[in-house]
C-alpha cells in the first residue's frame, strides 16, 4: 500500500476517486431529501399534510419510495431497442452527476476551493455536462418505440436546444464582469467587487433562472412529461429502477442549476463572519442553494403549464433577443469602464 501511495499519479487518482465517492453519496442523499422537501412543501401549498407515516415527520419516506421502486417489475417493451433502452437512464444520471466535479462548494481556510477539481473552464464544463443531459431523455423516448415517449422526447429535445442558447448568452454577461471562466474565480470577483452579480446582471439572472427551469423540465416548462396529453412523456414505458433513475437525474439537475445560479449571481459561499470561520462558506452556499430549490418548488405549486407553441415562441422571440441585448449592453459598459 505504501509504495502504491508513493506514485503521484496513483495517489492523485485515489484522492479524486474518494472525493467523487463522498460527493456522489452527498448528492444522492440530498436528492432523496429534496424529494421529501418538495412533497411536504407542495402539500402545505395545497393545505395537505404530505408524507407523515414513514418515520417521524415522514423522514423515512425516501427509503420507502426506493424500496417500492426496486421491488417493482422492470418491463421492457417488445419493440424497444434493447441496448439504448437500458442505457438511456444511465446516461441521464451520469451526465447529471458529471457537473459536480467542477462546482466549488465554498473555500477552505487556506483559500483553496472545496471542490473535486478547480477548472479554468469550470462554467463551460458545467454547460457541457448539461448539454449532454438531453441525450438521456431523447434516447430514452426514442428507444421505447411508442408514440407518447417519442413525442415527449422530441418536445424535450426542441425545448432544450432552444433554451440552451439563451442560457449561454445570459451567463456571458457574468463572465464579462468577472473576467474569468473559473467558478471560484467568479465568486472571488464578486467578493472583490463587493457586489453579488444578481444586482448588475439582474436581467441575466432572470433569463438564467427561466431557462434553467426549462432545461430541467420543471413546471411551468414540464412539457416533455405533460400528463394530460402525453401520459408521462419520455419515461412512459419505463418502470421500476430505470424509471427511478430518470427521477434521480431530474432532481440532481435541479440541484445543479441552483448551485450554478448561486455561484454566478449570489456570490457562491460569500457571506458574513467568513473572516473568523472560513468553512462557514459551505453553509452559506447550501443555504442559498436551498432558497433556489424552494423557489423552483414554489413555481411548480403556483404556475400552470405553458402551451407548447407559446413556450417555443417565448424562448426564441423574447428570451433570446433580451439575452443578446443584455450581453451587448454589458459588453459596451465593461469596455467603456476599462477604457
Amino acid at each position: 500500500m505504501n509504495h502504491l501511495l508513493a506514485d503521484p499519479w496513483l495517489r492523485f487518482i485515489l484522492v479524486v476517486a474518494i472525493k467523487s465517492g463522498v460527493l456522489i453519496f452527498i448528492v444522492i442523499t440530498s436528492f432523496a431529501y429534496l424529494m421529501l422537501f418538495e412533497r411536504k412543501i407542495l402539500a402545505w401549498f395545497q393545505l395537505r399534510l404530505g408524507p407523515i407515516w414513514c418515520g417521524p415527520w415522514g423522514l423515512l419516506q425516501p427509503a420507502a419510495d426506493a424500496v417500492k421502486l426496486v421491488l417493482k417489475e422492470d418491463l421492457t417493451p417488445r419493440d424497444a431497442d434493447p441496448l439504448i433502452y437500458r442505457f438511456a437512464p444511465a446516461i441521464a444520471v451520469l451526465t447529471s452527476v458529471l457537473a459536480y466535479a467542477a462546482i466549488p462548494f465554498g473555500t477552505f481556510p487556506d483559500g483553496s476551493p472545496v471542490a473535486i477539481a478547480n477548472l479554468n473552464v469550470g462554467i463551460l464544463y458545467i454547460l457541457a455536462a448539461g448539454s449532454l443531459g438531453v441525450y438521456g431523455i431523447a434516447l430514452g423516448g426514442w428507444s421505447s418505440q411508442s408514440k407518447w415517449p417519442l413525442l415527449g422526447a422530441i418536445r424535450s429535445t426542441a425545448q432544450m436546444i432552444s433554451y440552451e442558447l439563451a442560457m449561454g448568452l445570459s451567463i456571458i454577461g457574468v463572465l464579462l464582469l468577472a473576467g474569468t471562466t473559473n467558478l471560484s474565480g467568479i465568486t472571488a470577483a464578486q467578493s472583490a467587487h463587493h457586489v453579488w452579480y444578481i444586482l448588475p446582471q439582474f436581467v441575466g439572472f432572470l433569463i438564467y433562472f427561466i431557462t434553467a427551469t426549462a432545461e430541467t423540465n420543471r413546471a411551468p416548462f414540464d412539457l416533455p412529461e405533460a400528463e394530460t396529453e402525453l401520459v408521462a412523456g419520455f419515461h412512459t414505458e419505463y418502470s421500476s429502477l430505470r424509471f427511478g433513475t430518470f427521477f434521480v437525474a431530474e432532481y440532481i439537475n435541479m440541484i445543479t442549476v441552483s448551485c450554478v445560479a448561486t455561484l454566478l449571481f449570489l456570490g457562491g459561499g460569500d457571506g458574513p463572519f467568513l473572516a473568523t470561520l472560513p468553512l462557514l462558506s459551505v453553509a452559506w452556499f447550501v443555504l442559498k442553494v436551498m432558497v433556489f430549490l424552494f423557489v423552483l418548488i414554489w413555481m411548480r405549486a403556483t404556475l400552470p403549464r405553458l402551451r407548447y407553441d407559446r413556450l417555443m415562441a417565448f424562448g426564441w422571440k423574447v428570451l433570446l433577443p433580451v439575452a443578446v441585448l443584455n450581453l451587448l449592453v454589458t459588453a459596451a459598459i465593461v469596455a467603456l469602464v476599462k477604457a
Binding site: A128, S131, L132, V134, A138, L139, W142, T157, I161
Partner: peptide, 13 residues
Amino acid sequence: AGAILVLFLFVIA
C-alpha cells in the same frame, strides 16, 4: 456533442 448531434438525433428520430 451537445448541440449538433442533438439535431441529428432529432431529425433521425
